[in-house]
Structure formats: C-alpha cells, structure tokens
Write a protein that binds this DNA or RNA. Structure first.
Lengths: 117, 117, 117, 117
DNA sequence: GTGGTCTAGACCACT
DNA sequence: GTGGTCTAGACCACC
C-alpha cells in the first residue's frame, strides 16, 4: 500500500479497513487479522496496528474478545451509518471548497459529469 | 480569523490569501502586506508569516523584491491555473471518496442537490 | 565545520549532505541522522536542521517517515541526476563568466591546466 | 535587465558595469551616468545606484569629481587586474566544485568542450 | 525516539 | 521598513 505522507498512517489504515467493510470485502461479525498480521500486511509498526483497532473499536466498528481477536461489529446499522456519514462529510467538504472558489453548484455538477465521461 | 486545529496555521493562511487573489480582493501585481503586517492581521508570528510568503512564492503565486516587499505575480494565467487546479483537486478527491463508498455519480449529484435546497 | 558567512548556513549544510550522498559516504535508502543529531554534529539549531531536511526532501534527495526519521531516496537515478545537474550548473556558470570576460574556451582550458600543475 | 533574486541587486549592477568596462563598451576615463540616470536605466532605487558607485570607487574602478560626476579610472592596469582577478576567481570556484563532485580536471575539460560544440 | 509546527526575539543585508 | 536567516525553547502527533 502507498501511504500519503501528509496523513497519519494509522488514519489511512483505518480508512482502508472501513472501506473493506463497507464494500463487504470483510463481512459483519467476521474476524479481523491479528495486530501482528495487520502490521505485516500493511507494513506498519505493531504499535500502529494496535492503535488502528483501538480507534475502530472506539467508533464501534469492531470489538475484541479476549484471547480470540478482533471482530467486525455484527450491528449492520453501524456500518450503514458510517457509510452515510462518510458520504455526508465528503459532500459538505466539497461544497465548502467549491463555494470558496466562487463556483456554483450547477457548474460543479457539470465539471463532475465532464470528468466522468 | 478562526483556525482549524487539524491543519497547520500557515496552510490555512496560505489558503486564505489564495482565495483573496482568486476572488480578486487582491489584484495581480499588487503589493501584499509585509511580513510584520501579515503577522498582526492574522495574529501569527512573523516567522510563520514569512513561511506563508515563501510557500506562495515557491508555487509562483507571488514574488519578492529585496527590501521592497512581496507582490502578487503579474502573470494572470498562473492565478487562473491555480483556480482550475484547486477546483480539479476538489472534484477528483470528491469522486475518489464517492467511488470508494460505492456511490454512483448520479447518486452523488442528487445528494449534492438535496444539500443545497 | 567552518561556515562561509556569505552563504546561509542551511544551504552549506545541504551542500555538505549532498556531497556525502554523491560520494557515497551515505548510501541510498540509508537513514540520515535525526534533526537533533544533525543539529549537534553541525552545531546548528534543530530548526535549521529541520529546514535542511525539508529542502532536501523537496528536491527529492530524501524522504521522511513520520516518527521514524529521514532517509536518503532509494532511487539511485535521482542521485545521479543531481550529480550531473550540479556538474552542468558549474560548467554553465563558468562558461558564462568566461564569456562575459571575453575569454575563449581554449584560453580558459589552458588557464585551468596551469592552475593544476 | 533581469535580476537574479538570489544576489543583491547592487552587486548585479556593479558586475554589469564592470563588464561594460572590461569589454570596452565604456572606455577608460569616460564619464559614467549620474546616480539618477543609472537609477532609471537599471530601474533601481537612487540609493542603490549611489551604493553601486561607492563600491566601484572603493575598488578603484572609478572616481568622482565634485559637481562633475563619476568617471572610469584612467589607470588601465586596474582594469586589467580586475579582469584577471575575475577570471582567476571563476577558475578557482569551478575547480573547487568539480573537485567536490569527484570529477577530474580532464573530465571537466571534456565536458566543457562538449558543451561548446 | 522522530519530525512538524509555532512563538519569541534577535541580527543582518538590502532598498 | 523589508525580507532572510538563525537561535532558543516549547508543544504536539506519530511510530
């Protein structure tokens, strides 16, 4: 994985895992790799891997069972919430930037459509 | 000015100045406030103000004449380029996130329109 | 290290490090001393040391991993490019001066050879 | 005239005038433009123009007669000395850089010849 | 431990 | 007065 040096690595890994969950590459209730495995697959420090799970747990995305490992939450609504929340954030941020640049929403929509053709 | 603690202050000031230029509150070739003035108006340290201008100069947004001050570039194309570049970045970033979330462009456009009503 | 007061210290340190890399006293991919170590060995302020690495990074000579340190780029071509680029600059500058002084290239070559005997 | 922002303007103007003298675009004993004229032709501040003549005078390149203006020295040996001194400086500096880069004199001479073809 | 940022205060050369 | 550089010391996030 390529890391963007501007963003903390642990946030980038968190994001990657969230995306895996949202896009169902990892299913609800499924076991996540151990700290050490995560550290290897993402070439990060074990401490950083631990922090990743810690944060994800704090957000309710996953939970840990002593001696068994870390699992994705079985509550599907949490996953959906995360998805809509991330979408919302993306839109708000985008509109803010567009507005600052003095570009109308219609113009922005046109630019988006052009990009996609 | 209110600063977002997530982003370095100098980047926020850089952005603010760019916006002033793009929206023609500051014109091409015009003199920018001195380091010390900038420091006062943005309530930052003169060193930070100096860094702001150094970065802007490196991006070609302004140039400096020894002992005379810092000026907005006289090349209008650079300003236009920066505007389109910033718009492009915003759009690309937005599409990337949307795509990661498995949201189609049409859906995204609808969501944008809803936000704005 | 003795500093030439005409040139900013940070540029002199940058140059010294580049020379260490070019002459393979420091190898590709190798870890560079930390900001604080550099500050001590070159008897400069840690801030100045940080600036040194920032500039070198901007030139692509090294990269930095958050919390881990600064490393020489692993791309050997960049190092070679820098060497040839520096040689080119030296030659162009020399020829420019020689030309301004109305000295022919052959004369200049002779003067160089005399100096070296 | 285009100024290199890295070097003080007054040094650049001094250099330009020296070159004019060396290449006999300005002859020995000839009157130089007044401070004000110099300021206009080089688009510099009159203070800077004054400094230029002050430095040139200090080096013996020119002298001033009260109320009459500034003149190039009538002593041709000074002009010749400056020329050889500048050539020497150029060569020494060049050899130093080449040496730092681990390039032999013969290689350097070849590179110079290639550049000129 | 590491780099990144920021403040404070100072000195200097240039215009 | 202007920008450029440097020191000193501090706090923070990251690994």
């Amino acid at each position: 994985m390529q890391y963007d040096s501007k963003l903390p690595i642990y946030l980038q890994v968190i994001n990657a895992i969230k995306m895996d969950i949202i896009n169902e590459r990892i299913k609800c209730g499924q076991k996540l790799p151990s700290n050490r495995e995560l550290a290897v697959t993402y070439t990060i420090n074990p401490n950083t891997a631990a922090r990743v799970y810690q944060e994800l747990e704090r957000e309710g995305v996953c939970f840990t069972r002593r001696g068994m490992g870390t699992f994705v939450t079985e509550d599907e609504t949490i996953i959906k919430d995360i998805r809509t929340q991330m979408a919302d954030e993306a839109i708000v941020e985008f509109l803010k930037k567009i507005n600052e640049l003095g570009i109308s929403v219609e113009e922005a929509v046109n630019m988006i459509r052009q990009r996609e053709e």
